[in-house]
């Protein structure tokens, strides 16, 4: 479904990616692991069109997307839940969800989607008219995921959804994400620091270090890998 081939990208004079190749199959869950500053978030930024690669190509459903605008990419069915959530803090929960559906024009569908998402995240219904900035960390993360789903994506890019959350809260979020993946068939590309939860959640994983893929394999195999265990799993 998503094919990233040999992309290179840089921030000004600093090169962040040196030829990264990744494939995400339809309906699958793939994770990117790696230390801070390895370029994981940069990969997501390239896919969602926030950053233009200087070389390589990105294909979604067989169509090249690496030169398209971020708006066009959302319309094609890719949704990016960014690092640090990036909610519209001063706007209400409801307005945040409506912004998630900005590219859609079917108001009936939007209404029914909000109702459906309230099933996953009941707290959002309760907090509907509160400013997003007043929610707790876990609630904000739920809102970020819900907002990402409002555009009816077929591919969801998630950047560190568990960052700064208590283990119980983050387990809850992963449970909902699994449900979304199984029941609605939404493909997920996940960037995560917490390698243990990421590998138990995803089917396949890539390890990114200094802008390159160093290892890739099925999650079960990665968990066994000596280097991965020592560097990321801590045993």
């Amino acid at each position: 479904m998503l094919k990233i081939e040999g992309i290179e990208a840089s921030y000004g004079p600093v090169k962040a990616l040196h030829g990264v190749t990744i494939e995400v199959p339809e309906g699958g869950v793939v994770t990117l692991l790696g230390p801070n500053g390895a370029g994981k978030s940069t990969i997501l930024r390239v896919v969602s069109g926030l950053l233009r690669p200087t070389a390589g190509r990105v294909e979604f459903d067989g169509r090249r997307i690496d030169r398209r605008s971020a708006e066009a990419i959302v319309t094609m069915g890719i949704s990016h839940v960014p690092e640090g959530r990036q909610l519209f803090d001063e706007m209400t929960v409801h307005e945040n969800l409506m912004l998630g559906a900005y590219t859609r024009h079917d108001s009936d569908g939007i209404r029914s989607d909000i109702k459906r998402l309230n099933g996953y995240f009941p707290i959002l219904e309760e907090r509907r008219e509160q400013p997003a900035g007043s929610l707790s960390g876990g609630e904000q993360q739920q809102l970020a995921v819900a907002r990402g789903l409002m555009s009816r994506p077929r591919l969801l890019l998630l950047d560190e959804p568990s960052l700064g959350l208590a283990p119980l809260v983050s387990r809850d979020i992963f449970r909902i994400l699994r449900q979304v993946n199984r029941e609605e068939g939404i493909t997920i590309l996940l960037v995560e620091q917490d390698a243990t939860s990421a590998l138990s959640f995803a089917e396949y994983g890539y390890v990114v270090e200094t802008g390159r893929i160093v290892i890739e394999d099925a999650s079960d195999k990665l968990k066994e890998d000596e280097n991965v265990r020592r560097a990321y799993l801590g045993y």
Binding site: L50, A70, E71, V74, P82, Q86, F88, T103
Partner: peptide, 10 residues
Amino acid sequence: HNPGASRLMG
């Protein structure tokens, strides 16, 4: 409020 996130909303 947030131009970056707005681009991600399409």
